[in-house]
């Protein structure tokens, strides 16, 4: 069996966390390589948190919030979107494989989507790591 990855997921309380919950209740299967940190809003995710994750040895990071327009606080995730866009760009520029850092929108009703997102993220992170090992 493949080595378990360490992926940190920052999930907003109102949508993605509930979505993940729903995925569990609905028994959708998805890899268990993700460790979830619940945040009030994806806008709470300070880019420093993401840096800290990588610094402390995380293989990947996922930030997940409500769909644009659905933020519990009206507009928190719009800011997140801008911040993460820039951060991802910067990571890329410095040579951190872009497949190691993901942003997704998962609503409370999208249990299936959550499972799909995690599956895709785990695959991507794994691929990135295999790629760098080859180097």
């Amino acid at each position: 069996m493949e080595k378990k990855l360490k992926i940190v997921g920052f999930l907003c309380n109102w949508c993605s966390y509930a979505g993940a919950d729903l995925a569990g209740v609905s028994r959708f299967q998805y890899p268990a390589d993700i460790r979830v940190i619940r945040v009030p809003c994806s806008g709470r995710v300070n880019p420093l948190f993401i840096l800290k994750c990588f610094q402390e040895g995380a293989d990947g990071v996922l930030v997940s919030g409500c769909h644009p327009g659905d933020c519990h606080y009206q507009e928190g995730n719009y800011y997140t979107r801008r911040r993460m866009m820039m951060l991802k760009d910067l990571f890329c520029f410095f040579g951190i494989d872009k497949r190691r850092f993901h942003i997704s929108w998962v609503s409370a009703s999208e249990g299936k989507k959550w499972a799909d997102v995690v599956t895709a993220v785990v695959e991507d992170v794994g691929a990135a790591l295999r790629g760098s090992e080859k180097q």
Partner: peptide, 16 residues
């Protein structure tokens, strides 16, 4: 500063 503002139709192509 652009990071203290947003547009509803900001780019989304980097979202998983």
């Amino acid at each position: 500063s652009p990071l203290t503002r947003f547009r509803r139709d900001d780019r989304e192509d980097f979202i998983t």
